[in-house]
Simulated assay, not measured.
Amino acid sequence: MSDVAMLAGVSAQTVSRVANGHTTVKESNRQRVLAAMKQLGYRPNSAARALRRGEFRTIGVIILSLSSTGNVRILEAIATAAARESYAVTLLPVSAPTEREVRGAFTRFSESAVDGVIAVMGAELLDSPTVSLPPNVQVAVSDAHAGDRYSVVDTDQVNGTREAVRHLLDLGHRTVWHLAGPEESFAARRRAAAWQATLAEAEREIPPLVHGDWSAESGYRAGLRLAAESGCTAVFTANDQMALGLLRALNETGREVPGDVSVVGFDDIPETVSFLPPLTTVRQDFATLGRLLVEGVLRRLRTDSVEPGITLVPTHLVVRASTAPPGVPEGARPAGWHG
């Protein structure tokens, strides 16, 4: 900094003000300082500035799994939104949804340079008495069942599921089977509970729950089981990847989609339009979810307050060719059915 000041013919204090973005520096002095910085290859020490200001412009993210497409897209959205605010992201994947793993993740963050944490996991893991949140670190949670201790943003899991199940019932299916995500997933539990509640409200039979692990392979294995159920004419899957495996299993066992079995997914990943047939699915707005989670953390950092209530990001059912009334072969469906 002294070298820059000497070359620019200004004081070290002026160099510091330019480096820190102050607007009180004369423009002619600012330009001389910037030119000297460029000539000498000077870079402000962001770590030292962070220690001096007490902020690191970094958000930590704790996420349960990177194997599901949904979590990867949430992470991408968080990183994009953070970058727009000139924040970096530090990722800590948690290998298992246990108090020990979550406690370890927050312990590591308490020893790291982060200003806030976004937790993409069930709030019950955060509320355990054994989990200690880092002091002065703000937390946002992607779980609609989190309490008022955090900034809470989540996809409207319940309404998205209701739309999917009601769509199938309105087509004339007597009931809807559910291929759920893993039991430890809070999103999978919310969707399974909403599926069951929707069938109960419609006074329909509730079939046995079938679990996958978010992967297409698990959807295929579950699909072989569902294909053997003669009364299964409609399936709501908890994500699109499992729906892909389900479609393969139904095709291999001679069950036509949607003539014999209608299938609805959840997420609306870009590939769903290329499934065979193109998949009816619930669209999640991952970009908005990530942006609101980042905004929730930053709002708490700037105001040290939590806005009451939960922010739910709306979903939208996208109807394509994988759903139809029961027993309607593809050639007999009305024109324009693909939606």
Score class of each variant (00 low, 15 high):
Gln284Gly: 01
Ser112Gln: 14
Ala193Gly: 08
Tyr220Ser: 06
Val273Tyr: 03
Gly309Phe: 01
Val158Tyr: 12
Gly309His: 00
Pro326Asp: 02
Arg291Pro: 03
Ala197Pro: 07
Ala35Asn: 10
Ala113Trp: 00
Lys38Phe: 04
Met121Ile: 13
Leu298Met: 11
Phe266Leu: 03
Ala321Tyr: 01
His145Lys: 02
Pro258Tyr: 06
Glu76Phe: 02
Val306Cys: 00
Val210Asn: 10
Gly265Met: 12
Ser305Asn: 05
Glu111Cys: 13
Thr130Cys: 08
Ser68Tyr: 04
Leu7Asp: 01
Asp170Ala: 15
Val261Cys: 07
Ala79Arg: 13
Glu163Thr: 09
Leu51Arg: 09
Ala81Leu: 07
Leu246Gln: 12
Leu66Lys: 02
Pro182Glu: 11
Arg17Lys: 15
Arg108Asn: 13
Ala83Leu: 11
Arg255Ser: 07
Arg204Asn: 02
Ser132Gly: 07
Lys26Pro: 05
Glu256Trp: 07
Thr90His: 11
Val273Phe: 04
Gly160His: 10
Leu199Trp: 01
Ala188Pro: 05
Glu101Thr: 15
Leu66Gln: 02
Glu252Met: 05
Ala123Trp: 02
Ser305Gly: 04
Val294Tyr: 05
Val318Ser: 04
Asn159Asp: 14
Gly336Ala: 05
Thr272Gln: 05
Glu99Asn: 10
Leu246Glu: 11
Asp156Ile: 03
Ser262Asp: 02
Val235Trp: 12
Thr175Cys: 10
Val273Glu: 07
Pro97Asp: 12
Val139Trp: 07
Leu7Trp: 06
Asp154His: 00
Ala194Thr: 05
Tyr87Arg: 02
Leu34Asp: 02
Pro270Asp: 12
Pro134Ser: 07
Arg248Pro: 00
Arg248Glu: 12
Ala81Ile: 08
Ser16Leu: 05
Thr90Val: 15
Gly245Thr: 13
Ser67Val: 13
Thr23Lys: 14
Met6Trp: 06
Asn20Cys: 03
His167Tyr: 07
Leu133Pro: 02
Asp3Asn: 01
Thr253Tyr: 05
Pro93Arg: 02
Glu183Gln: 13
Thr24Gln: 14
Ala88Asp: 15
Glu295Arg: 13
Met242Gly: 09
Ser322Ala: 06
Arg190Trp: 04
Thr155Tyr: 00
Val139Tyr: 03
Arg43Asp: 10
Gln13His: 09
His178Tyr: 10
Gly219Leu: 15
Arg255Gln: 13
Ser2Ile: 12
Ala96Cys: 12
Arg53Cys: 03
Val313Cys: 06
Thr24Ile: 11
Val33Glu: 04
His338Lys: 09
Ala249His: 14
Val282Gly: 07
Leu125Ile: 04
Ala187Asn: 11
Arg300Trp: 00
Asn29Gly: 00
Gly331Ser: 15
Arg17Pro: 01
Glu307Ile: 05
Ser28Val: 15
Ser218Leu: 09
Val137Phe: 06
Ser132Leu: 10
Ile62Gln: 06
Gly254Ile: 01
Pro277Tyr: 00
Glu307Asp: 11
Val210Glu: 11
Thr155Phe: 03
Thr272Ser: 01
Ala164Cys: 13
Ser230Met: 06
Thr130Arg: 14
Glu111Trp: 08
Arg302Gln: 09
Pro182Val: 08
Ser322Asp: 10
Phe266Glu: 01
Val18Thr: 04
Ser322Thr: 01
Phe266Tyr: 15
Ala83Asp: 08
Leu75Gly: 02
Glu27Val: 13
Val257Lys: 00
Pro308Cys: 01
Asp156Thr: 02
Glu330Ala: 12
Ser2Val: 07
Gly122Trp: 07
Glu330His: 06
Ile74Phe: 00
Val264Asp: 11
Phe266Trp: 12
Val176Trp: 09
